[in-house]
Every structure is written in C-alpha cells, then in structure tokens.
Design a protein around this nucleic acid. Structure first.
Lengths: 212, 212
DNA sequence: GCAACAAATGAATGACCGTTCATTCATTTC
DNA sequence: GAAATGAATGAACGGTCATTCATTTGTTGC
C-alpha cells in the first residue's frame, strides 16, 4: 500500500510532503468520492500520520482545493503548450494535436478525471470549486475558438461559427470523458476518441480526416 | 419556505410524503451538494420533523437513491415517449423533437440537473449510483442509434456510423448541460442548444436545418 | 364518542470525523 | 556530543449528524 515501507520517520521539505498528500488525495477521491473522503483515509494512503494534513495544509478543505487546483493546472499547462506553440506545420496538425492530447494517457487517467468530475458535481454549491473549474474552461475556450476561427478562414468557410464550435468541442470532450469514466464498457475510450474526431472532421473537413 | 404553513399536523398517505421528501431532497442537493446534504436540512425544507425521513425511507442512503431514480425516471419517460412514438410526420421531426425535449424547461431545470451531476460525480465510487445512471444512458443510446440509423438510410448515407453519432450526441448533451449548469454566463442555454443543433445539422443535413 | 390504529414528532444516543497540541524523534549547528 | 530546531505523530476533544423510539396527535371504524 505505502510506497516506501520505511521504518524510520524521515523529515522531508514541505513541498515534498504536500505533493505526496495531494497524490494520495487524488487516489482517495477516486476511490471513495468527495463525500466519502476523510483525512484519516488520505493520510493512511500516504503512509503518514493523521495530523500531517493540518500541518502542511491548514485544513481538509484547503487540501481538497489544492488538489483540484493541481489537477486543473496540469491539464491547463499541457493544453496551453499546444495552443501557444508556433511549431506546428499546419492548422490541421494543431487541431490534431489538441485531440491527441485530450485522449492521452495522462489526461484520461481515471483518478484525475474522477477528481475533476467529483468537484464539478459539487461546483454549483461551492463557489470556490466553481471558480477554479470554470476559469480553466473559459481560458481554454478563448484559445480554441481562435484556433477554430483560423481553420475556418483557411477553408474559406464564412457560415460556421467558431465560438459555437469551440463551446461544442469543450462540452463534447467533457461529456465523452464523463461517459467513458462512468461506464467504459458502454463507451470505450477508443470509441470516445472516434466520436470526438468525427466532430472535428465534420467541422473542418479540409483539415481533419475521418479515419486515422 | 414551507409551502403550506399548516398549524395542525396532518397525516398523509405514504406516497404523498415520499414525493414531498424527494422534492425537498432535490432542492437540497442542488443547494448544498451531495456532500453537504443532511437529513435535518431535507426535512426542514419539507416542513416536517427529523424522524420522518427514516419513517418513510429506511435510511438517508435509500432516500438519496430514490431521489436519483425519480429524476432519471422522469427523464426516461419523456424521452421514451418521443422515441417510441409513431406520430411524427418524418424522421427529421422526431430528431427535432428529441432536441427540443433535451432543452425543454422541465429537463434543463437547475435543481434536477444538479442532482444528476452530483450523483454522476460520485458514480465511480458508488456502484449503485453507477448502475442507475448508466442504465438510463444505455437504454437511450440503443433507441437513439436506431433513429439515427433510419435517418442515415433515408439520406442514402453509407459511411457515417449511427452508433458513434448516438454516443457523441449523448455525450454532447451531457457536456452542454454540465457546462451551462456550472457557468451559465460562459455558456448560456441558448448557445448550448445551438451547439447541439449544429451537431445534428452536420450529421443529418437533409433532415435538420442549421438555424431554427 | 370511543377505541384502535397509524402517522408524525423531536429529544436522546452513539458513531464518526476534523482539528488540536503535548510529545517524540531525526537533523542541524556549534 | 549536547543543545536547538522543527517535522511528524496520534490520543484526546468537541462538534456534527444519522438513527432510534417513547410520546403525541390525527384518523378510521363502529
């Protein structure tokens, strides 16, 4: 269970412990849900003592918030590095990369997605969760809409609405993740990825091919 | 707060009270989230005494389960009545009705959606929640795929995959609901509906028009 | 109008859990 | 190697909450 079965208690810098506790929290939220999580569960998962959570984070609530932030930051970093890169040979390649990223192993990790949807499910009643989740999405929407606008321009498409396509893409990805997470037998990850590709292929037929 | 400020305590048949408590639970889950809900909150919302929840439902957990079931049943009933009806003048009209239903006031009710996503967010760690949520979706997917297959046949389309389109549609609707619920300023309901129409219009150009 | 019954109440109970803090112990400093 | 430092521990505390049940109150049958 515990990674290192150290007999002796080793002091570690604050940052190392915080990271360790956040990783344990992600696992526990995935296993027990947001409403089933307890400090004892998390600290046991981390192989540490109960009091450690309040020592490094001020409270359980702060630990949960930093965990959510950590998951969204990681996603945002990966996504931004694609959207802000100038190294892609074409607009199509950039859209292609976005799709590949959204279904890459680090992103469709069950534990991280469980954290994301666990907090989203409570977001309406917790302003702080809501702020973290929707700041993530609104920054993304802006850049994705710009990328889509560029693709439409290149294709000479004057009717399609890039904003609408971007909002639809983000929602579709969220929905596919959620469906595949909750019941992977009904919606296997490959099928989810195909559905997303389908969406992009019909919006940008000159850039994205149906099959891959 | 309480609907009827009755002075006198009135005995009511079991079914009436259960309905009343389920309605109060929906409101409370929306207001406080699944992890913030308490029996005291629910019974106060219903204007009844604490003990009533355990009198009519065996436990808090059973009350929550019946609440989830009630929300999904209501949705399933409305959806099934469209999908199984033979009264539509055309396949396009039936698809159009499905879309209208998915954004009708009774369906995009904030409280009911909050219940749906609250439970979905915990579904991975609660097999019972998972079973209720995904049974709903898999019955729907079957019928929607059949409808889409019919539309593709009518259009002479031999390449598109009706199963994939149905899975995508369900996921898209889930994602749009979730995004509009969490941050309606970023994704207003009108825009969400337009995004869904866009999806259908590009899959079934001979049946669904872009604008409405 | 009076039993007999059923519905509803809410104070009491006990389990669970977040937080605290006196204590332990590894590490550093001189 | 002794003293100082601060990371880590976990038993104890107090608050919250689901559940129980003795009691009250409305309803039904006669």
């Amino acid at each position: 269970m515990t990674k290192t079965a150290n007999k002796t208690r080793r002091a570690q810098p604050k940052e190392v412990r915080k990271e360790q506790l956040i990783r344990a929290t992600i696992k526990c939220v995935a296993k027990h849900g947001l409403s089933g999580i307890t400090v004892a569960l998390v600290t046991r998962e981390a192989g540490l003592s109960m009091g450690i959570a309040n020592l490094h984070f001020e409270s359980k609530e702060k630990l949960l918030l930093e965990t959510l932030q950590s998951v969204t930051d990681e996603y945002a970093a990966g996504q931004t590095s694609i959207l802000e890169s100038a190294d892609f040979p074409s607009t199509g390649a950039k859209i292609e990369a976005l799709l590949a990223f959204d279904f890459s192993p680090a992103v469709i990790d069950k534990n991280k997605l469980a954290v994301w949807f666990g907090f989203l499910g409570e977001a309406r009643s917790r302003p702080t969760y809501q702020r973290i989740c929707s700041r993530q999405d609104s920054m993304a929407e802006e850049s994705i809409a710009a990328l889509f606008r560029l693709a439409l321009d290149e294709a000479g498409d004057r009717v399609a609405d890039a904003d609408l396509l971007a909002a639809g893409y983000i929602a579709l990805i969220d929905g596919l993740w959620l469906n595949a997470l909750v019941d992977p037998r009904r919606l296997p990850w490959d099928k989810a990825r195909s559905a997303a590709r389908h969406y992009l292929a019909s919006a940008f037929p000159k850039h994205i091919a149906l099959a891959r």
